[in-house]
Design a protein around this nucleic acid. Sequence first.
DNA 1: CTATTTGAACTGACTGGTCAGTTTAGTTAG
DNA 2: CTAACTAAACTGACCAGTCAGTTCAAATAG
Lengths: 220, 220
Amino acid sequence: MTTSPSGGSLAGSGDAGKKLRPARTNATKQKLFEASMELIGERGAAGVTVDEIATAAGVSKGTVYYNFGSKSDLIAQLLRHGVDILLARLLSVRDDSADPLAAMEEMIGQAMDFMAEYPSFARLWVSENWRTPSEWQDTFAELRGRLLAVIGSAIDSVAAVYPVDSGVSRGSLETAIFGACFVVGLDRQTYNPERTREQSVAAIMASMRGYVVKQPPAQA
Amino acid sequence: MTTSPSGGSLAGSGDAGKKLRPARTNATKQKLFEASMELIGERGAAGVTVDEIATAAGVSKGTVYYNFGSKSDLIAQLLRHGVDILLARLLSVRDDSADPLAAMEEMIGQAMDFMAEYPSFARLWVSENWRTPSEWQDTFAELRGRLLAVIGSAIDSVAAVYPVDSGVSRGSLETAIFGACFVVGLDRQTYNPERTREQSVAAIMASMRGYVVKQPPAQA
DNA sequence: CTATTTGAACTGACTGGTCAGTTTAGTTAG
DNA sequence: CTAACTAAACTGACCAGTCAGTTCAAATAG
């Protein structure tokens, strides 16, 4: 029985100076994350073998099981890792001043950048997110909640400043925007590479602009 | 050597009177469609075995290979079958008179109903749609095009009557709405069953209402 | 009306191969 | 010394696709 670390993601949080303890860098985990993100994004979690992942990461199969307890764990940690990155980007948008609509637009832009940079993560997410009895059900529920909370609070900021359409529930709007980010980002990657970042952001922002009220829509 | 049919979907097109020729009904194919839609929607194409599909359909494994040439073919035909149903519903919305925005809203409502009725198809779609070298790449491209065309023409109808935001490209908007339909529908099924059809439609329609212009968006 | 034939539809055991996960003995580097 | 990692062999399960054989309803023959 190998004494594996198998723990959380590659935090390396409070280990500044010492240089030795945290077992070198987490370069191996990082490489495994990158390799599996790529492969799993392309062919799905079930379509990729542990051997392939190990080879792609330039590492032996045993190392995968040393660093992660199982294929399933690897994927769960991969999901957390990706969401951590996305969350960091979304939270980098400082709401403090200015127009909350502009903040929203910047957040969507950050999301589009993320999708462009980590399309494989986006594919993994949409591939596995809605499976009903899934090994990662709880992981997804938690991560989804964390992401939606950020979007939700951005929507709240808008609703606090602008008059909004009360017929649109915040929850549904969150979901629609969140989902649109993934789908528009992926579609751009797969089917419409000529589409610009701005076009994509504008299309998603349309729902925010429709959320803030104008005069009642002109009874045709 | 069995002379297998393996052909297109369960058409039975022009064989009205004669009663005998078209080899009974296509009951078997239909049952296989239903069973595989369910299973594949839950666990993904790679996660389901042909044996399972056969058993769930109350049929032997050989029958699957008799009716379809391979697991891959089965899934390709399954995709076509589902899209045919969805397309039929979208096209059932008659555009002829009235407000194109109302037509749009009804189309989105139809899409939500479809997602509620065939959540497994929706899961299959989002699971496999954006995989890069996929066996069904061409199938997806074709079907996606057909669906987007319908949505696109509905958007055009709106743009023909209302003044719209020219900063939003039709293509991106199509994609955003199309994607939002799937994602909102699936999310409702998986995470928010309490959400009503109307809430979901309203959230998606927000993007259309943001697409038609009001006074230029209030330079904050 | 009965007997025989045909062939499409279907069956399920079997094959060849794959894969997750384990184990072990050894290597490297801090 | 020890944590991290390697390389390779192995197990036990699982699975896509095949194929020789069965069933039965309709067509044909007598």
